[in-house]
Amino acid sequence: MSSTKIFLKSSDDKTFEIDETAARASETLKNIIDGGCLDGVIPLPNVSSNILPKVIEYCKKHGGDNGSSKKIANGGVDKDKEILPDYDEEEDKREKVRVDELKKWEEEYMDFDQQVLYDLMLAANYLHIKGLLDLTVEKAASMIRGRTPDQIRENFNINSDFTPEEEEEMILIEDEWDDEWAFD
C-alpha cells in the first residue's frame, strides 16, 4: 500500500502528520479517506494536541494489522489449539513472540495518568479505534475493580441522585454484593 501522508488538526489548531495506512486503524478516518473527502487536513474538534500524538502512536503500531491485536483480546490463546493434537508448533511459537512483544509495547504505552486515560478513551471512541478503546477501557475497569460506590462517585465526579428512601434500598444492595469476601 502506498504511504500517502494525511494531516490531522487537533481541537487547539495544531497539525499532525500520519501515514494513510496507520490512519486506517481508525474507522472514522478510514471512512473519511475512502469517502474521498480528503481536503488536505482533517479537523478533529474533539481531540486536543496533547492526546492526538498518543493516538497517532497507537495507530502507527497497529495500522494495517488487526490480527495480533485480536489475539490479545481473546486471551492470547486459540482455544482449539491446546486440546487438539494437530497444529503447527513453530507457527504457534512465532505467534507467541509477536503477542508478547505487543503486550510489552502496550504496557509501556499505557503508562499515563487518569486524565490522559479518560481523554484517550473519548478519542478512541470518537475515532472508532476498537483496539485502543479496548485497551483503555480495560485499564479503566482494572482501576475501579474492587472499589466502593462512594469511591466511584468521587472518582468519576458523580453525585448520587437517589432520594433518601431509594438510598436506603441501595445500601442493602451494596451490602449484599460487598466485595469483602469472608476470609478473615
Partner: peptide, 25 residues
Amino acid sequence: LPCEIVSEILSRLPIESIMQFKSVC
C-alpha cells in the same frame, strides 16, 4: 464519560462490582 464508554468499562467488571455499582447514580 458518555454512556457507551461507561458500559464498556462496567461490562468488564466482575458481577459483584456491577451489582454494587448500581447504587452509584
